[in-house]
Amino acid sequence: MIDVENLNVTFKSGNALMHAVRDVSFFVEEGETFGIVGESGSGKSSVLRAIAGLIESTHSKLSINGKPTSARQARENSRLMQMVFQDPYGSLHPRHTVDSILREALIIHSIDNQDKCILKAIADVGLGVEHRYRYPHQLSGGQRQRVAIARALILSPPILLLDEPTSALDVSVQAEILNLLGRLRESYSLTNILVSHDLAVVAHLCSRIAVMQFGRIVEVISAEDLRRGKTKEAYTAELIFASRGFSRVS
């Protein structure tokens, strides 16, 4: 469904050229949840933003459902894919109520029955009607992330891009949001790309996982192999070891 070949992203900082993503290629099947893991600065978020059309990229192929996509067709892309961002405190407009945040896309795409759509979206992510006219500062982090998910799903896109959707939340809320994402994947039959630095999160939701380092994909591994520690590359083993946390050498 999502076909990426030789994706490159470069950033200019002053005169220096920063090559954030180098020749990344992968393919995501319909209905699959594809994971991308890596440490900070490995370029995983840049891959996602390039697919979303939020940053410029060069590539030999970047197509969704067989159709090439580019940053210039944001309006067409918006019914095709949406994104949930890492920081629920920065991804909601501080002066808009939940209602107007959700209504935005419906107005842009002139969709009828807006109130019904909004109520359904609120219910789908497990919020109550009492949250509808609240401002983001009146919501908790988990509730904000639910609003962000509702906003992403209100146009019923087949593809949902998840950029570290749980890393800004505390552990108990993380589990709730992950379960919600798992449930919505079924009810909306979503294709997901999940970016995370948390191997447990990725192994929980994804079927295949790309491991990134220094802007390249080191290895694509199945969740099964990841759990069993059957890695081909040394870096993946290192990452798994690091994710188990600190162990004392006695």
Binding site: R49, G53, Q82
Partner: peptide
Amino acid sequence: KSDFISAAKMQGAS
């Protein structure tokens, strides 16, 4: 640079 502007762009806002 905020994510809510990115989100608005992704929703096709002009």
